[in-house]
Every structure is written in C-alpha cells, then in structure tokens.
Design a protein around this nucleic acid. Structure first.
Length: 794
DNA sequence: CTATAATATCTCATT
DNA sequence: GATATTATAG
C-alpha cells in the first residue's frame, strides 16, 4: 500500500456493498477495488483472472470513476474481448453506449490510425495486409534488389521485419549488426524499401498499426494529449504477452494519468517467439513506481494432484516472480502418464478413454486433446472420424486465410480502390482468363518498374528505363519512383499493341468487368456485389467444374463468406473486420471433443485434458531450444504448465516410443518434463506393458518412474530390441504381429506378401527379421517381417 | 498460356 | 508426407 491511511473516495464506499463484490475472495477484491494508480495483478492459472478484470471494469463504471467511453481495455484476441464485453454487460446490463475502447491492441490501434492516417502519409482507407500479401510484396522487393530469393526467402524476411516491429524498431533504428541477419547486411535496407512501398500502396501490416501510432504519439503531443483527456483508465489482459511495441504504446497512453491496471501471469508467458517480453511484467513495479501489486493464488479450477504436479513442474524455471497456488478442492485423481508404441496407438488410447468417459454419461465437450504443434492433430482426427467421435478443432485452419476467401477479398478490395496492386495481381488470372505471367510482367514494366527505388539526395523522379525526367519536384522523404498502378498501366496498354491480341482482349474484358462492378457497387449492397462478382467473374463456375474433393468445401466456404458479410453494414466495415478478426464464430460447442494446440488453449478449461506427444524434440520442441536455448526451454515448460492447468478433474499425459517425423520413423525419448513431475502426484501407467522408456536417460538423478519402467514388459521389450523397429503386441494389431515368432523370419525370397500401408509386394531379400520387398505401388522398401502377412492371408 | 510432372522445402505456435 | 514452386510438354 502506497499511501497509508488514505480515505476511500465516497463513491467507492457507496459501491462497497455492490452485490458483485460479495462473491470475491480477499485478493480478488483488493484487485477490483484498486481503481487508481498503477496496479499489477499477478493471477495464477485458474485464480479467476477474467472475473477480476470484468468485475473491476464494472466497478469502475458503477463508482462513477470512469465512463464507458473513457476506459481503454485491451486484450490479445478478439475472443477475449468479446467475452469481457459480455461479462461486463451481464454484471451491469447492456446499454450505456457500450465500451468503445474495449478490443485487441490491433483493432484499437487500427481505429486510432484511421483518424490520424495522414500524419504518417497514409489515406484513412488504408488496407491492412495479412501475412500472405506481406510475403508476396517482400518477394518482389527482394527480386528487384537483386538479392537471391532462393537463399533469402520472403517468408524469412517477413519474420525478421516482424521481429523488428515487435521491438518498435524503424528501419533507421535497426542495430547495425542485426541488419546482417538477412541478405548479408541488406536486411535493414530491404525493410526501408518495404516501408516506402507500403506507403505507396496505402497499406500497412499488423506491426505498423502499433508502430504508426507510437510514431504519431511521439511526434504529435497534441494528439496524445487528446487521448490522455479522453481515456481515464487503462486495463490490460495477459500482460505477460505484451511485446516492446505494445509496451511503448501503453506507456505513452498511460503516462499522464497512470491509471493502468495490468493482469497477467509470468508463468503463462508462451509467446516469446512473437516478441512477447516477460520482462514487461517482471519490470512493471520498476516502470510504474508505487504500483500496487496483488497476487491471486487461490485456484478454483483444478484438483489438488493436478495443481501440485503443475506447480512442481514450473518450479524448475528460474526468473519467476513466484507464486504459490493452492486449492481447497480435493486431491482428486493423480496425473496419469502413459507410454505407448507409436502415434497411432496413442490416438487409439485417447479415443478409447474418451469413449469410456462418454459411456459414464459425461459429455464429449468435457474432453480436450491439447497438442504442441498442429501437425499432431491429424492422428487424432483420423481416429475420431473412424470412431465417429464428434470433434472440433480450436483455431484450426483460419477461415479468412483460405485461398478462395482471400480471392474474393481481393476482388472486393480492387473494386473499392484501383490502387490495390496486390489484389490486382492476385486475381487478374483467377479464374484463368488468359492473362498469364508474361502479361503481368509487361504491366509491371509499363507501370514504371516493379519496385520502388530511392532517388538519392532528393533528386527528381525519373523513368528508370529511359532516364526521362518525370517531375522536377524533389521527392518526398522515403518517396518512390512509381507512377502508375497496375490497373492504370493496363488501361493504357490495352489500346497499344504491346500485348498479344489474346491477352489484350482478355485484359480489356477484365477491366470492363471491374468498371461495371464498381459502378454497381454504388447502388447495391456489398453482399449482392459479392454474389455478382462471384458469378460474373466465373469464379463459382471454375470451382463447380473442378472435380477435386476440395472444390466442394471451397464453394461452401464462399457461401458462408457471403453470409457472414451480411452482418456488417458496409464493405469497409466488413473488410476491416476481416483483416483483424481472425477467429471464426464457433458453432455451438455442444457435443464436441476439443482438439487444440496448447497455445490456443490458454484461458480455457476442461474437466478431462489429454496431453499427448510429450517426447523430446517434440515437446520441448527442438526448434525452440535450437533458437532460444535455455530461454526457449523455459518457455516450453511454461507451455507444459499451461497444458496441465487446463484440467479440472483429470490430466492424462502420454508419450510414444516411435514417431514419424518428416515422414521418417524415428525412435524418440520421453520428454524431460515427465521426469520433472513429482512422483507423489503422478500415476505412471503402462497399459500395453511396452513402449515405456527407462528413466534418467539424460539425468540419472531423477527417477520418479523407476518401478513402472522396470516392469517385465518393458524389460522384455528392451531385450528383444523393440526399439529397433519391432512393434509390441497390441490389441488390434495382434493379427499382424502374431506371425513373427522368433528372430528367424518365416519369409523367404519370392514370397508374395501384404503390408497394411504399402500394399502387395514380393520379397527380394531376407536378412534376419528384415525383409527387402518390391512393393507393387510403393517400390522397394525394407520392412520388419512382423509388419507383413502372406498375401494369401490378406 | 495452361496443364501436368517433378522437385524442393519444410513445417511451432499469431495479431 | 504434403504443399509450393519450377520444369517440361502440349
């Protein structure tokens, strides 16, 4: 407490009896009632963080300390924003003008930027590029700069630039040595060109939304002051995930009044790879002197064993603020740890568990399978489909990133503004109209040059091909030499004979289409416009004629797209949302098993949680450790912590002995995180009796599972060389395995055999229990004999 | 210019 | 193993 004996303002006392306060515990209540000055709420997993946040917001409004339009409340995802809005309305009832400043960093910043766009050289109808556009643009720039795109791919540059923007570094501010992290020192220059190019395109990327506002706040104090007047209180959710740019953005907005409340959990910081700085939360008290710090440590979600296991695991991390979570709940079930043979067996095991759960009258929706990386989901999807278990992928392939959806958007963007070259390029020949790469090249050439070149020392603009001076005006700082849009170039070129006749007529027809649509757009709704465009462009026709299985879903996606457009009043409003609102409205989660990555599961909870794939190199992910070493490992551990703490009643971890990585089979070791679990809270079960690995392979000091690893089954498996590729006998596979009695193969050269994956084939060589087989479809393979059966038996 | 075959690249998580 | 780009033929 900073100011001892300070009297509570009268309005606060008046609201002290508010019904919503009664149900809070002491810590939560302290956080809710600390309305003024900087506040740091350290909220462990399941301690009622969202509740505190929403109640505090409600409290701000009830006490009259703040108005609905003077509270800036920031979240990271639109889902979180929506949820907060709903819960505040539940507490206070709807109305009151809503909460205009409740949203994600990006959506709020985008809104601000629309009103001040001209200050950074943009028009207020600027386009927000997504990653795809960004990469395409960068690729062009890389090519034009004569850098080898093979060696320095656009995707990578996008990542590098993103990293700089996360740290609020403009091209000039990129440290010299870091400019070398791309294209032998060309990185910063390419970044500068990219920024200039964005300006011409009247576009910005995600990072720019924040960067431009920071720039404006710093260069135009009056604008900032205006926001200081407008916004009385600031609140931030998931503060541990903020990056440097977001931090600066917040600090600028908060510096006048210092009414900033941040809520977060350093143990759940899992977004370091996209620039999150755990330091932001670790440093808060230093940055905002006199900050009140509230710890929320009572967990209302998980049972005792689960919480203890998670706490013990996370205690292996250094550099934490440190919290001691506790629960009043029972001990409940221990965390289950199970080892199986391979990914298929794992999927089978988990699917069976889920069926069992369902049979005891619990809901599918209570179950979640949380994986480290999206590719791990496939095995489960296959199994679930086979068993008709309904499931739902959380944050699956993003709807708005699908090719067909982006194509439609490109059409709409192009109709809206002619200068959207990226959109033009995307769809000139989609569907095919005979305007190929060659023609587009010519358009680019005619439009000036495909790319921007700086004209040094503010010289005149000139045509790069002819040297012809086009304007004597000195060029604007960061300006460019581009004079025509691609459409502009096209309009001029269709009347010349620089293009083959075929391309010319096709292009002319396309331009006429665009003009017509643009004309129609003035009178009809954007939904009708989309329908007309889809129809008249031949896009739907193209998909209808496409007989591939994806075409059907694409058509359905487009239907859904047109429908969703109806929810917005104008095309502008719609496109703005498309750019920023990446999560799709979940259809009723009624009776679906939830399949999700660990990242996407943050903030969610489920009675029964499965955590498969706990193997070295998979989890902790090899890449994280390669890239960030100890820091990366700690982040992985936090991810494990997040995973376990999603569970209310039961957490079931599993690992496999063999996994297919890059399509090749590899023997893998159990995750070191398994060794770090406290044996007192864990049940190590070996259902098959095989597949468990010995403990302490890496660290002989830690052997929590000695007993189960020494099971007869395990030892037998080891002796028989199971890990060289012989599968154990598992129910369902018994038929295939049964034939392999001893070590001498019962197959001989010339035998015709059947393999479950590779099909029929003929044995061409036998070596112990390894067969060389010429498969009819799959070609020559070496397989273990127990994986095949005689063709006559198949 | 388009359609098909072959090859390369890589695969983590997101606003 | 799958997708994305590139080479080749039509």
């Amino acid at each position: 407490m900073s100011e001892e004996g300070e009297m509570l303002p009268i309005s606060v006392r008046a609201a002290a009896g508010a019904p919503y306060l009664a149900s809070l515990n002491a810590g939560q209540r302290a956080a809710v009632e600390a309305l003024d000055g900087p506040v740091l709420v350290l909220a462990g997993a399941g301690t009622g963080k969202t509740r505190v946040l929403t109640t505090r917001l409600a409290h701000l409004l009830t006490t009259g300390k703040a108005k609905p339009w003077s509270v800036l409340a920031v979240t990271f995802t639109n889902k979180a924003a929506r949820e907060m809005r709903e819960r505040v309305e539940k507490l206070l009832g709807p109305g009151g003008g809503g909460l205009p400043w409740l949203g994600t960093f990006h959506s709020i910043s985008a809104r601000m930027l629309r009103t001040h766009a001209e200050l950074v050289g943009l028009k207020n109808n600027f386009t927000i590029l997504d990653t795809d556009d960004q990469v395409r643009l960068l690729k062009q720039i890389i090519d034009a700069e004569g850098v080898d795109e093979k060696r320095w791919p656009g995707r990578q540059l996008a990542g590098v630039i993103d990293g700089w923007k996360n740290r609020a570094l403009t091209p000039e501010k990129v440290p010299k040595n870091e400019g070398f992290s791309f294209a032998d020192g060309g990185g910063a220059k390419l970044y500068a060109i990219y920024q200039a190019r964005l300006k011409i395109l009247n576009a910005c990327d995600f990072g720019d939304l924040l960067m431009h506002m920071i720039d404006i706040f710093q260069r135009y104090p009056d604008v900032l002051e205006n926001y200081h007047k407008k916004l009385s209180h600031l609140m931030v959710d998931e503060y541990q995930d903020t990056n440097v740019a977001q931090y600066l953005w917040l600090r600028l907005l908060a510096q006048a009044r210092k009414n900033l409340c941040v809520v977060g959990d350093d143990d759940q910081s899992i977004y370091g790879w996209r620039g999150a700085e755990v330091d932001n939360i670790l440093r808060f008290e230093h940055d905002f002197p006199g900050a009140e710090v509230v710890r929320l440590e009572q967990n209302y979600r998980s049972t005792g064993h689960i919480l203890a296991a998670a706490s013990h695991l996370i205690a292996n991390n250094r550099g934490r603020l440190g919290k001691t979570l506790f629960t009043d709940d029972d001990l409940g079930h221990r965390v289950k740890v199970r080892g199986v043979w391979d990914g298929e067996a794992e999927a089978r095991l988990i699917a069976d568990d889920i069926e069992g759960w369902r049979q005891s009258n619990r809901s599918y929706a209570d179950c979640a399978v949380l994986v480290r990386a999206a590719w791990q989901m496939r095995a489960f999807e296959e199994r679930f489909l086979m068993l008709r278990i309904p499931y739902k992928v959380i944050g699956g392939p993003r709807f708005f990133e699908r090719a067909e959806v982006r194509d439609v958007h490109a059409y709409l963007r192009l109709i809206r503004s002619e200068d959207d070259d990226l959109a033009f390029e995307r769809i000139v020949n989609q569907p095919k109209r005979g305007i190929g790469e060659g023609t587009v090249q010519k358009l680019h050439a005619y439009a000036g040059k495909p790319l921007v070149r700086f004209v040094t020392d503010n010289g005149p603009l000139f045509d790069q091909d002819t040297g012809e001076v086009v304007t004597e005006q000195p060029e604007p700082p960061g300006g460019a030499t581009r004079f025509r849009t691609l459409i502009g170039a096209a309009r001029e070129m269709v009347v010349t004979d620089d293009l083959p006749l075929k391309a010319r007529t096709a292009l002319r027809a396309f331009l006429a289409d665009l003009d017509r649509w643009r004309e129609q757009a003035r009178t009809i709704s954007h939904v009708e416009l989309a329908e007309i465009v889809l129809d008249e462009s031949g896009y739907t026709e193209m998909l209808r004629r496409d007989k591939s299985p994806q075409a059907q879903t694409r058509l359905e996606n487009l239907k859904e797209l047109v429908q969703s457009m109806g929810q917005y009043d104008t095309l502008e409003a719609y496109l703005e949302h498309v750019a920023l609102v990446l999560d799709i409205e979940n259809e009723t989660d009624s009776e679906n098993v939830q399949l999700s990555t660990l990242h996407a599961a943050k903030g969610l909870e489920f009675p029964l949680v499965f955590l498969p794939g706990w193997e070295e190199e998979v989890f902790p992910s090899k890449r994280s450790i390669d890239e960030s070493g100890e820091k990366g490992l700690e982040e992985e551990r936090r991810l494990a912590y997040v995973g376990i703490t999603r569970a209310r009643e039961s957490a079931r971890i599993s690992f496999v002995a063999n996994r297919q990585i890059y399509g090749r089979w590899q023997v893998v070791l159990p995750s070191r995180f398994i060794d770090e679990l406290p044996s007192a809270n864990v049940d190590a079960v070996s259902e098959t009796g095989y597949g468990m690995q010995p403990p302490g392979v890496r660290d002989m000091a830690v052997e929590p599972f000695t007993s189960s690893y020494q099971s007869p089954g395990w030892r037998r498996a080891q002796e028989r060389g199971a890990f060289q590729g012989k599968p154990p006998m598992i129910e369902g596979e018994a038929r295939l395995v049964a034939r392999s009695g001893g070590d001498d193969s019962s197959y001989k050269r010339g035998d015709r055999i059947f393999h479950q994956k590779f099909g029929y084939g003929r044995v061409s060589d036998v070596e112990g229990n390894k067969l060389t087989v010429q498969f009819e479809k799959a070609g020559e393979k070496r397989v273990i004999d127990s994986f095949v059966i005689p063709a006559s038996a198949a």
